[in-house]
Amino acid sequence: MAITAAAHAKMKDWLQGMISHGTYTKGGVETTMPIHAISQAGDVITVQFYLDDNVSGTITKFKVIDKEGGVFDDQPDSIVKPALNGLLITFKYTLKRV
């Protein structure tokens, strides 16, 4: 049996509310980045972080951190970010009611 529509909506709200911030790793150093935006469209929750032109170099990992300090998601990567551009990092999660 599927959960109710009301419970499904509460789970999406919970997911949006449990994310605290993100981090990125550059040169072996992990640095905190604030949430730029969180949005919901249907069953998809999108979490975005933004690195401005003050950050440059090779970034090797991005993480989403929950309000308890735990790693909710992490994505190894290898992005060379130039100083003259910003970078928008996007994580998307789909919560479907089946």
Rank of each mutant, 00 (worst) to 15 (best):
T94R: 12
V29G: 01
M33A: 06
D73W: 12
I3N: 05
A37L: 07
V44G: 10
T23S: 00
D77H: 05
H8G: 04
T32P: 02
G69D: 09
D74F: 07
I3C: 01
V98S: 04
F91C: 02
V55P: 00
L95D: 02
K92V: 05
P82N: 08
A6V: 14
D53W: 00
I59E: 06
G70H: 13
V71A: 07
D43R: 09
I79E: 06
T90H: 03
T94Y: 01
K92N: 13
Y93W: 11
V29K: 05
H36W: 10
Y24T: 00
T58E: 11
I3D: 08
L15Y: 13
I89W: 02
D73M: 09
V55M: 07
T58H: 11
G70L: 14
V80G: 04
V44P: 04
T58Q: 14
M18V: 10
V80D: 13
A2P: 14
T4G: 15
I59P: 03
L15W: 04
D73C: 08
K12E: 07
A7M: 14
V29S: 08
H36M: 09
T46M: 13
V44D: 13
P82E: 08
L95W: 06
S20K: 11
I38D: 04
K10P: 00
I45G: 03
E68V: 11
K96S: 14
V55W: 04
G57E: 06
Y50I: 06
A9H: 10
L87Q: 14
F62G: 02
K12L: 15
G22M: 03
G42T: 08
P76C: 00
T31V: 09
G28W: 01
A37P: 01
V71F: 02
A9C: 03
Y93K: 15
V71R: 06
Q75D: 02
G22P: 04
G28A: 01
D43P: 09
N54G: 12
V44L: 13
L15M: 07
A83H: 09
A41M: 12
V29L: 02
S78M: 05
F49E: 01
L84H: 13
F62P: 02
I59H: 06
N85Q: 11
F72Q: 11
M1Y: 09
K81W: 01
T31C: 01
V64H: 01
A7F: 10
L87A: 10
L88W: 13
P34C: 06
K12P: 00
M1S: 14
A37G: 00
T23Q: 03
K61H: 00
K12N: 07
F62I: 03
G27D: 15
D13F: 00
Y93M: 10
K92T: 15
Q75C: 05
T46Q: 14
V55A: 05
K26D: 00
K10F: 06
